[in-house]
Computed example of a mutant assay.
Amino acid sequence: MKKNLKAISLFSGAGGMDIGFQKAGVDVVWANEIDKDACNTYELNNPDTYLRRGDISEVYEELKNYNGIDLLFGGPPCQGFSVAGKMDPTDIRNTLVWNFLDVLKIVKPKAFVIENVKALGTLKKWENVRERIFKLSNDMGYSCNAYILNSSHFGVPQKRERIFFVGFLEKNVDSNLFISRLEKKRKKPKSVREAISHLGPAGTDKNPLTCTAKITLAANPVLRKSPYAGMIFNGMGRPLNLEEASNTLPASMGGNKTPIIDEDLLYHGSEINWVVEYHKSLMENKTKAKYEEAPKHLRRLTIKEAALLQTFPEDYVFSGSKTAIYRQIGNAVPCLLAEVVARTVIEGLEDDQPFNPEQLTFESVQEKALYSESHLKIFN
């Protein structure tokens, strides 16, 4: 019987990426996280994994015991790179990707996976960061390709785009082959309705009402063609289209940035989509809509629902305040997407292809190539 591969998880958070790798047959033997609430959540759900709490840079020495392990994976905090943030090059969180590469040098796994926001792979602002990731990993003997993936292409009920840097030690796994294997795993996502409706209405036993931030109509709405875009309510919380995959869930959920659900549409068979009607009235008369306040059947996405849209197991236990739990969920890698990546990496490890630096190519599933020689270029 083939033994499970063993892995180290960095910047583990609540464990979303770990769940995916574990479902792919990987034993996560050592993990690291600095956030107290996320650590508590991780330990509650991963009793067989040793969790090292604290700053990763302070525990490099003990990682020498894991030299030659099969896999190293993780998602260094990405707020410094994200278009949703200030995109400040001096943001301390931007340096954590180099901590990951420090560990890579110490541990020298057979393969590694770094997850981060799409912006790190597409914006010229971060060109030097991408190029350095490629160069440092190449210098350590890894072929490193980058893939921008939309989680909804792989069964996740959420349109979440992320970049994955995938490296293999002393072997070149052809990026076209890697992409073809990803393509074989494509799967239509569940809609928001299909993903959460079995929980029951918010406030019931299986679906506690966890966010009570009031929903009010924006005094100066920002309109877009879609009623599910723009800003027609207070704060950044946008309504979710129940018949499609959700938009990206932010880590800032918990207050008025929490997405909005129409309870009547979801559970009470309403034939009127209030959000669509309200948006239509705004589009027809941009100075004044026919409604003065949001109806009571609009409410915020619950913790249980948010976790399911990230494909956490329904029985997953979270620790911390409501805000801390929403943050853990929003920061996570969708479990199902992580599983797809893990299975594809494992297939790459099973290939018998020698490492040839001259054959390296860096491509994305979205038909954008990330190619690095002396410089990194992005082209359509």
Rank of each mutant, 00 (worst) to 15 (best):
G80R: 03
R300V: 02
E115P: 10
V97T: 14
R343W: 02
N172G: 08
V365L: 13
H279G: 01
K188F: 05
D70F: 10
L104T: 10
G167M: 11
K190T: 03
E33G: 04
F112W: 12
L242F: 02
S319Y: 13
G330V: 07
K125F: 05
E170M: 14
W30V: 10
G235K: 03
K3I: 10
P76F: 03
L44F: 03
E277T: 01
S180Q: 14
E127G: 13
G54A: 13
N256Q: 15
N145Q: 14
L71Q: 10
L123A: 10
Y371N: 15
I56Y: 01
L63K: 09
I34E: 00
E284Q: 15
R130E: 06
E194H: 05
M140L: 14
E363G: 04
K2N: 08
Q158L: 01
I196W: 00
G167R: 13
E271H: 11
V333Q: 03
I148P: 02
I378E: 14
A7V: 06
S180M: 06
L249N: 00
V113C: 09
K171R: 15
L217K: 01
K304L: 03
L120E: 03
H279E: 00
P221M: 07
Q328R: 05
K280I: 00
P334I: 02
L72E: 12
G269A: 06
E127A: 14
A245M: 07
K188R: 13
K322D: 15
K105P: 04
N220W: 02
V117A: 02
L223C: 07
E131H: 13
V166L: 05
A84F: 06
E363T: 13
E244K: 15
Y316H: 08
D70P: 08
S57L: 09
L308S: 02
P227S: 10
E305N: 04
K377A: 11
F21Y: 14
W98T: 04
V333E: 01
N176A: 06
E347W: 10
K368Y: 12
W126F: 11
I346G: 09
N273S: 09
K108N: 14
S364P: 02
E183N: 11
K118M: 12
Y267M: 02
A324Q: 13
P313H: 08
Q359N: 15
K304P: 04
I303A: 03
R132N: 12
E263W: 01
M140T: 07
K190P: 03
I92C: 01
T49S: 05
T204R: 12
F362R: 14
V365E: 14
K23M: 08
L209N: 15
E131W: 04
K159R: 13
E292I: 11
K225G: 11
A338P: 07
D35C: 06
E347K: 11
N150A: 12
G200I: 10
M283Q: 12
L136Y: 10
A369S: 15
L182V: 09
I34S: 07
T302F: 04
E115A: 02
M231E: 06
G230K: 10
